[in-house]
Design a protein around this nucleic acid. Structure first.
Lengths: 210, 210
DNA sequence: CGCAGTTTGTACCGATCGGTACAATTTCTC
DNA sequence: GAGAAATTGTACCGATCGGTACAAACTGCG
């Protein structure tokens, strides 16, 4: 989804673009959509308005959608797809918790789709916000079911886990203590474990978080 | 904490003021702090700039602090104090879940301290945001302990429950389905119950949510 | 009524908002 | 190295931002 602008040297271009989108993401995370002004966007990325509007002709809204798409792509590759297709569901779930801890930087980074969901920004990006959480819950439900959990229970545990992660991020930031997030993550993983084999085998490390 | 401006007829004044602060709260909830423009604030309250700045000489920041204080006061009276001092801890916890469902309008209203916690707004109101969650967790921990739960377990369950509520609000809004919140609340209440007497006796209904 | 104090609408302030125009520069291709 | 295309900085746009000034209108009280 991280589209590349028309141009040559596409190999280097993509990397460049990915880092750029990561900087934009940081600004949206730190200030929210309304608070992410063009001044902050240009300041953080180091690019002038001209460059930014050349890359994103539709402006701030387009920057946010590209950011959301990059986040979705990362989760698709490192979390959702493994949960859905992983040969060992328990290992996929263990991998999910590792990836989540990695992506959210052990509680120091918030979830942009979650933050967008809370205020009026949601309506601007309703489809992407809805898909992010829907895909996550669906994938986790699938892994739990294949681990032997009944559908209803799997669905409920998936919702509780995804919600718990969001809430733990809120709590960690409210107390300015990332450890709150780390510990909450561990308890959620433990709570999800009993119904399945506990010996989770590592299978693949998460790629560099955007 | 909801201070009353100098003036007569203080009885009616307080009510008037409480409703006004409620309208301000709605705007902050719907748009976040940076998105809550003076135009929206005046539009929603029906008051002109002159009136608003007469009531809140320090402007937007003061409006937000008064809103946060009113929210804190409501939770103090309807949730925290009962949790800490209620004769029957199990009943106090049941009352908490009722109050939470009521205050957050069964998932249709978000938690402002939680929303503030996520972005840079937190730093502007760090003390109040920190206190809100700290008081809540402390009060719930107290009730669980008095219900017979060991300290460590009580503390962890309190954090998980408060975080779970925040996450459920995020999830409900992401799917635009308040029922997600209601069901998640029920499961959290059930999960908290087994360690204590299940027969919760109603003791006091929550007052009108601001 | 008449007056003091409160409350309010309106005009206005400089700063910043998101976005556009466009010429100058850099970069790639041949 | 010439020419085309992509990239960039800068100036500028109208709108809106949060906030101030202040005179008019309203209020309660004697």
């Amino acid at each position: 989804m991280s589209q590349r602008p028309a141009g040559p040297a596409s190999g280097r271009e993509i990397t460049y673009h990915r880092e750029l989108v990561g900087s934009l993401a940081d600004v949206f995370r730190e200030h929210g959509y309304p608070g992410a002004s063009l001044a902050r966007l240009t300041g953080r990325t180091g690019l002038g308005k001209g460059s930014l509007y050349h890359l994103f002709p539709d402006g701030k809204a387009q920057m946010a959608t590209v950011v959301l798409d990059q986040i979705a792509a990362w989760f698709e590759g490192n979390v959702f797809q493994p949960l859905r297709d992983g040969a060992d569901p328990a290992a996929s779930i263990a991998r999910m918790f590792r990836a989540v801890d990695h992506f959210f930087q052990s509680g120091r980074r918030i979830c942009l789709p979650g933050a967008f969901a809370l205020d009026g920004t949601r309506d601007r990006f309703a489809g992407r916000v809805h898909a992010y959480f829907g895909d996550w819950i669906q994938a986790l439900t699938s892994a739990l079911r294949r681990g032997g959990m009944p559908l209803r229970e799997a669905r409920e545990n998936a919702e509780d886990t995804v919600a718990g992660i969001q809430g733990a991020l809120v709590l960690a930031r409210s107390r300015d203590d990332p450890e709150v997030f780390v510990q909450a993550l561990k308890r959620m993983q433990r709570r999800l474990a009993p119904a399945e084999k506990s010996g989770a085998i590592a299978s693949g490390e998460p790629t560099q978080a955007s």
